[in-house]
Design a protein around this nucleic acid. Structure first.
Lengths: 145, 145
DNA sequence: AGTGAAATGAATCTGTA
DNA sequence: TACAGATTCATTTCACT
């Protein structure tokens, strides 16, 4: 990971579909070299995925929420298995504090969110925070070059 | 937004760098049509961005956390302006409940996280949850086709 | 909206330093 | 690790359904 790799990453985070040719121009090295560097970062796991951010509302998902769940350590494995297969779960983190899990979800309606929260009760107490607005949406880290 | 558009979106969410040719094959329509559909979804705002997910730890960011901040309505505009320019902020949502803001951040060290939390005190009380693990990392919504 | 075929443009492969 | 040139491959444009 040198300055050029960081520059490539910054650019890919802004636009994952940028061409190798443009990256080559911006980094003052040839396209084959850019290609090799990207492949290398994919293999080493620095680059995990190329992802498309869509507008959930325009896709019919009007409710976004964060749900805190208090899961006992013994139930964690079962919880992970369950949560991974629910497509409405956009992210799940294991965190410090009274509630051990923080999951980000989107749903078409409050009714569906409610029914999902009910399904979580078998794992433990929940606390739900509804999203009103998103002043900063999912974005990357700007690495210093 | 028909079934083909949803299929394109599902595929782009899995891999934003997939070629038009492959999308064309999978959707049984020609590359120019795929291209036109994608352009259309970009213009209408359904597709917001193509984003690269990197491994923060491999980039030197070892601490991930969620910070709840209690911001008075009158201070929101100033808070948004501040938060938007902090590159360590990966997401910021305005939410229901006692704390009005939920921000996701990454830092190189706990010291830097601590100093950031201090800088937030002028906006209101904070409550920080450190991330131990991420069983489900940032992902897209699977649209039914 | 959709297509096929031509033209353009980009990515990969081979050679080489 | 990097490159330049040749080849292969993908994307865009355009005339037409």
């Amino acid at each position: 990971m040198d300055a050029i790799d960081r520059k490539i990453i910054n650019r890919l985070q802004q636009n994952a579909r940028v061409s190798l040719k443009e990256l080559a121009k911006e980094c003052y090295i040839s396209p084959p070299t850019i290609s090799a560097r990207i492949r290398h970062m994919e293999k080493s796991g620095v680059i995990k995925n190329y992802y498309t951010l869509i507008d959930p509302k325009k896709a019919g998902y009007h409710i976004k929420a964060f749900i805190n769940v208090k899961v006992e350590p013994a139930d964690k494995a079962a919880f992970y298995t369950y949560i991974r297969d629910v497509p409405n779960v956009l992210e799940c983190n294991c965190i410090s504090g009274e509630f051990s899990m923080l999951i980000k979800v989107i749903f078409e309606s409050t009714e569906l969110l409610d029914s999902f929260i009910n399904s979580l009760q078998k794992f433990g107490k929940t606390n739900t925070q509804i999203v009103f607005s998103t002043p900063v949406d999912v974005r990357g880290i700007h690495l210093s070059e």
